[in-house]
Design a protein around this nucleic acid. Structure first.
Length: 943
RNA sequence: GCUCGGAUGGUGGAAUUGGUAGACACGUUGGACUUAAAAUCCAAUGGCCGAAUGUGGCCGUGCGGGUUCAAGUCCCGCUCCGAGUACCA
């Protein structure tokens, strides 16, 4: 019987679904007392385009691992769900008027169908959707917990806000070491008691882990909305090409900066790639230095700067403020006002990224004001420049042009003096780069000190004189948490006298209201501003019509929604719960049992977003006693992207004719994407199909090769709908089967690398599956014998077992597939039919190609699924070699090989090699200088 | 710009982590089977040169240097490509 993947795959997918083969057991159901193991994929955003072959790459890898762990006797939790809030659904809603919930549901259905065809061992009973009110009820709940908490640096943990209020009442806030806004005023216990309730609430907001603050956004006046950086192309909005400017808005923020140190330290114990950990380290950006105050002349103000190089303080020749810095307006002199205002207006048009990336154009304006150097008391001109960002550090720098290239360039550009404070150095061409042994000069008490000591001394003096203090700074900024969007979680917040109030836990979820359109309102309010029924009745504890707002018992609700990362920051814990999802985000015994994700698989592009926010929320939930674990993802594997092989046709600019790739073309031409589904493996285009593919090509003329074929050129690009290079996994499953798709995706290369998809290569794994099937069959008959296995066959099998076990642990699946091929080729050659070989082989391939394995397992006479059968383990006795083919090298170049007994000593090997006539021939009479013998590896003769 | 990756035959990639570069596949070429095609099987396949039923030589892992008996692998300096860059997910 021929290998019929269609019937086999449908049969076993049905079997798995009906028998709930991959259901993970909760602790109470876990009679066999298996150890838990949690394998998780980063859940997908269900886009309208559906899955392409790039998406399942990581899922296949994690599925192999999950199946492997089941074979190893673990109770495996391997769930899947959807990150179903997001911009694309909202964009689509704006264009079509369709409710995003509707399109999202349809997209999810399509995703599910596609996923089901690939044979994943997901426990679908546990799926989550972030846009489901039953789910986001708990996202809102976590938000409230954050609101009700502050961070204590002495305890290194979050604490309930009541504890802080208590401390205010006892001692005021002067001797607290807790996270708060920079500009929080000091007060005594007496003052606190005398503050109005309103004032107290305002102060508490400066401590809460989620708080309201003015933050900058990309505002598009024409669209009346805030844009993501993604929606801005070359400084203009992607939709409509309108101008975009930076604008301050009052928004919710998350005080993630309080966790900077713990997020940094926690990386040490994670089994993640060093590169991702390094990215997070750099993102958190810890730097040690000092904060210094510069008084502004003729004003009662100070400019605070942070510097990692306080030793260079005598090299300061100007200061630069971010154009958005609060002091700018205040200190600018009347003469400079016009220039400063114009400059601020110009910078408002540039994104932060543009400002940082552009190091070539130097721009800035003098404010007319001077600061006083805190040590020399000399006047220092204060400039503004867009290379300084308001959101980083204090938004101001003390410029030391002799030591910092940007300051150096700025000084030269504006003819500002560049005093040199580095002894015996040349700064005529460029700023001086740091060297440890350099001495400081022209710096009073720092003279002739090397840099390290000068830094220490400078901090000492700065602290003594009360002009600053040692400080550790982090680049990590608090995360803006408000979005002016419809399709996100509503905040469980209403406003009384402009102050936020939380809706009580028992009244959650606060569900998204209906709106007539998904656009902002006329006066620039977020889409929720369109809702007619969006007010909170505190007596009834429910949402009521806006016209009932009386600011006494009925108040307006928050109009912003939460960002995409809200729901994805805690979903890994939701999967742990099955029964009590309405009562808790996850129950304690489930959390205790599953702990955290043992293996997380997803893209490295989330390095500093999702992966940092999830760690933050996990730490917070642990601090407040809701979790026992400090980290969400213990081990992580990052899959690379699968790229598409785009096809291009050449179209003449003048004649509009299409030319086959090999032809000489007289006129200028354009390269146009052709749908890759219209091109065969020999790069020949289906001309008729192409004419139908886009109506405007209907009557086009095609100039073919001499043999009548029309060829396209190929180029590797990102797989995307707009490039017409998308390969749909459904099509691959239809034509070759899910097992072939799974094997091929793994065979393509290392899971963590980007690599192009090439459908032609599929025939390799299809051939393998056929050969595997053939091993168990003779003609139409299933034939497996109880014959004693051949020694060679045992060796082939056990080599493969050893290799595959190692490979799975290392996530090196491409080499596993290779070794399966080698093994099957060998067994076919040996005409092996022995059960002793074929039964373990079947289990061995099961995680990779589960459908064919289940079928063969059944044919081998077993009942039930192969998926929990113990995984084969290799036996060294079948692998033992007693000889080794030694490469014999001369000066590092291999000249011939020699089979030698592995038990030979170094000297014996050397003797045999030297006696070999080929050695004498190579040496050609020369006397070797040295003979290097590495037993079991190599012989190298030097001379 | 900054941060993090990557680069090996015509193609995807392998190389026990410093020890025979190119495993395994795809593709190509030749052959077997066939009226023919598909499927299947067999053989060859990094480049150049030399041989001509001898198994030999040179070059070769993005580029330029270095360390070493030995470098795809380690070090220094570049080039190009990809990802992230704080409101895409």
């Amino acid at each position: 019987m021929a290998y019929n993947f269609k019937d086999i795959e449908a049969k076993w997918q049905k079997f798995w679904a009906e028998n709930k083969t991959f259901k993970a057991k909760q602790p109470s159901e876990n009679q066999e007392n298996k150890n838990p193991f949690y394998v998780l994929d980063m859940f997908p955003y269900p886009s309208g385009a559906g899955l392409h072959v790039g998406h399942p790459l990581g899922y296949i890898g994690s599925d192999i691992y999950a199946r492997y762990k089941r074979h190893k006797g673990y109770n495996v939790l391997h769930p899947q769900g959807y990150d179903s809030f997001g911009l694309p659904a909202e964009q689509y809603a704006i264009q079509t008027g369709q409710h995003p919930a509707k399109t999202t549901t349809a997209n999810i259905k399509r995703y599910r169908e596609q996923l089901d065809r690939i044979g994943f061992s997901f426990d679908w009973d546990r799926q989550v959707r972030t846009s489901d009110p039953k789910y986001y009820r708990w996202t809102q709940w976590i938000f409230i917990q954050l609101f009700e908490s502050y961070y204590d640096f002495d305890d290194q943990r979050a604490q309930p806000i009541e504890k802080l209020i208590n401390r205010f009442e006892q001692n005021g806030n002067s001797d607290l070491n807790v996270a708060c806004d920079e500009d929080t005023p000091e007060f005594t216990a007496e003052q606190w008691q005398e503050f109005t309730n309103q004032r107290q609430e305002e102060i508490l907001l400066q401590y809460r882990l989620t708080y309201l603050a003015e933050t900058e956004v990309n505002w598009c006046p024409a669209l009346g909305t805030v844009l993501a950086n993604d929606e801005i192309v070359n400084g203009l909005s992607e939709r409509g090409g309108h101008a975009v400017e930076r604008k301050k808005m009052n928004q919710w923020s998350m005080r993630i900066s309080a966790y900077a140190e713990r997020l940094l330290q926690g990386l040490e114990n994670l089994d993640w790639s060093e590169s991702i950990k390094e990215s997070q380290r750099n993102w958190i950006g810890k730097s040690v230095g000092s904060q210094v105050k510069f008084a502004v002349k003729n004003h009662n103000d100070f400019i605070e700067v942070f510097t990692t190089r306080p030793d260079t303080i005598f090299g300061v020749s100007f200061m630069t403020l971010a154009p958005e810095h609060d002091l700018v307006k205040k200190i600018t002199t009347p003469e400079q006002k016009e220039a400063v205002d114009a400059y601020i207006k110009e910078t408002a048009k540039r994104s932060e990224r543009d400002r940082l990336a552009d190091v070539k154009s130097i721009s800035g304006v003098f404010t007319g004001a001077y600061a006083e150097h805190p040590l020399t008391h000399q006047p220092i001109p204060i400039w503004i420049g867009d290379y300084v960002l308001a959101s980083y550090g204090t938004g101001a720098v003390m410029a030391v042009p002799c030591g910092d290239q940007r300051d150096y360039d700025f000084a030269h550009h504006f003819n500002i003096p560049v005093p040199n404070i580095f002894k015996d150095t040349d700064i005529s061409e460029a700023a001086f780069g740091e060297k440890d042994d350099t001495l400081i000069t022209n710096s009073e008490f720092l003279n002739d000190l090397p840099i390290k000591q000068a830094i220490a001394k400078a901090i000492e003096v700065i602290e003594d004189q009360g002009i600053g203090k040692a400080k550790t700074n982090y680049r990590l900024r608090d995360a803006v948490f408000s979005r002016q969007r419809y399709w996100g979680e509503p905040f469980p917040v209403y406003y009384v006298n402009g102050l936020p109030q939380m809706i009580e836990d028992q009244h959650l979820p606060l569900e998204l209201p209906e709106v007539d359109e998904y656009l902002p309102t006329e006066d620039g309010e977020p889409p929720l501003g369109r809702a007619q029924t969006w007010a909170w009745d505190t007596n009834e504890s429910k949402v009521v019509d806006n016209n009932k707002i009386d600011h006494k018992t009925v108040f307006s609700l928050e109009l912003n929604t939460m960002p995409g990362w809200a729901g994805s920051s805690w979903y890994m814990f939701r999967y742990m719960e099955t029964e009590k999802r309405n009562e808790v985000f996850a129950s304690q015994d489930a959390l205790d049992y599953w702990q955290n994700v043992n293996l997380y698989v997803g893209g490295s592009e989330h390095a500093t977003g999702h992966l940092l926010y999830s760690r933050f929320w996990t730490k917070f939930l642990k601090d407040r006693g809701f979790l026992k674990v400090d980290e969400p993802f213990q081990r992580m594997i990052n899959q690379g992207m699968i790229l598409g092989e785009s096809a291009f046709v050449k179209r003449g600019n003048d004649t509009g004719k299409f030319y086959s790739e090999g032809l000489e073309i007289a006129e200028d031409y354009q390269r146009i994407h052709a749908d890759v589904n219209l091109v065969n493996t020999s790069n020949e285009l289906d001309i008729e199909g192409f004419k139908k593919f886009r109506p405007e090509f209907k009557d086009a003329e095609f100039i073919t090769e001499d043999d009548g074929s029309f060829k396209v050129s190929r180029e590797v690009e990102k797989m995307s709908k707009s490039k017409y290079n998308v390969i749909n996994p459904d099509d691959v499953c239809d034509e070759y089967g899910a097992d072939a798709l799974r094997l091929f995706e793994m065979f393509l290369g290392p899971i963590d690398q980007a690599k192009p998809w090439n459908t032609a290569g599929l025939s390799g794994v299809v051939g393998f599956l056929k050969k595997l099937w053939k091993l168990y069959h003779q003609g139409d008959k299933f034939v497996v014998t109880d014959d004693k296995a051949d020694k060679k066959a045992l060796k082939a099998l056990h080599q493969t077992i050893k290799k595959v076990n190692m490979d799975i642990e290392d996530f090196s699946f491409n080499t596993s597939v290779s070794s399966f091929m080698i093994c099957v080729n060998e067994l076919n050659q040996l005409k092996c039919t022995s059960r002793e070989i074929l039964e373990p082989l079947c289990v061995l391939v099961a995680p990779f190609a589960p459908h064919i394995a289940e079928e063969l397992w059944e044919r081998l006479g077993h009942e039930g699924s192969v998926s929990s059968v113990p995984y084969p383990e290799h036996n060294e006795k079948y692998l033992k070699e007693d000889t080794k083919t030694y490469p014999i090298s001369f000066n590092g170049k291999m000249r011939f090989t020699l089979d030698l007994d592995l038990n030979l000593s170094k000297d014996e090997i050397e003797e045999i090699v030297m006696q070999d006539e080929r050695t004498q021939k190579q040496l050609d009479g020369r006397e070797p200088k040295k003979v290097i013998v590495v037993p079991g590896k190599i012989v190298n003769i030097v001379g």
